[in-house]
Nucleic acid binder design. Sequence first.
DNA 1: GATTGATATATTGTGCACAATATAATTGCA
DNA 2: TGCAATTATATTGTGCACAATATATCAATC
Lengths: 159, 159
Amino acid sequence: MKQSRNRKPSGTMPSVLDPDQQICRSLYSAANALIRTYRPLLEPLGLTYPQYLVMLALWEKDAVPVTRICRRTRLETGTVTPILKRLEGKGLITRGRSDTDERQRVIELTRSGRAMKAQAESVPVDMACMALLTPEEGRELQRLTETLYERLIEHQAKA
Amino acid sequence: MKQSRNRKPSGTMPSVLDPDQQICRSLYSAANALIRTYRPLLEPLGLTYPQYLVMLALWEKDAVPVTRICRRTRLETGTVTPILKRLEGKGLITRGRSDTDERQRVIELTRSGRAMKAQAESVPVDMACMALLTPEEGRELQRLTETLYERLIEHQAKA
DNA sequence: GATTGATATATTGTGCACAATATAATTGCA
DNA sequence: TGCAATTATATTGTGCACAATATATCAATC
């Protein structure tokens, strides 16, 4: 592992509490840095990354309940509800009520929200152009993070 | 890639906007889920994960300026300063001033903060016991996230 | 058809995460 | 010496992220 910024003296006893050994720090800082990198690409759309994630879910399938948005974005309702309100405020979605189940909202794209999809197509393209990872590295990283995610959810379900 | 929760009809045109294709979502949701999993392990210490990260930095090297904490945690000063205030409030650290440079703080562990280190040793152990990833998977994941992080920082420096 | 339990969403409170900006001390150097 | 540029930290404002809790509707069953 590279430690260009924190070389240890050779012969140092490795500690389980060494920050450089923390997989979670690596994962966390990479995720934060990646979202920071999305920012300028999303700025023309006026979206944050979590807002973009919600829009992706809706471009995939429109007129869905909040539950589905949570499932596809992997965020909790307490996170998603305020995001939906902001997207409504921007005029990108509506938050109607289901006819068959008064508890359920039906989240629908407005014309403006639908129109944004075309503009958004450039975001993954621009991101890919940065060539941050090779295609193989990208696939491997996604495979590993998906594995980890699944096991964490599974573990969480047991507790 | 597994898509147990969102099978697409075979022959569906793959979209660059498909949520399941987003490496960033995989990374983000795995990082969030991992930090959630740390929570019960850190609860006996009364720490959040970012607070724990700061403590790791101080257990590695005590009596350091804020800059070093930022570097080792990979968090910004705007994030770290309030965390340091909370840790000070818990009686784990002090935030003195440097004699040689009045701008600089010297962040030092208190006796209580130093004592916590022994208790914290069990956290990585308990985490490892969950066997979320094999040692090889763990190493590979850390290698890839470190690579990504470095390239993102590099890219950010250019802009 | 009333009650019990489950489900869908919303609210509240705490703690990040960071950009932008402010403040203050130090350093360089004209 | 004086002052411009740099550096260290703090502050402000916005938007997550989530646990815990609340509320309202629906479903099941007695």
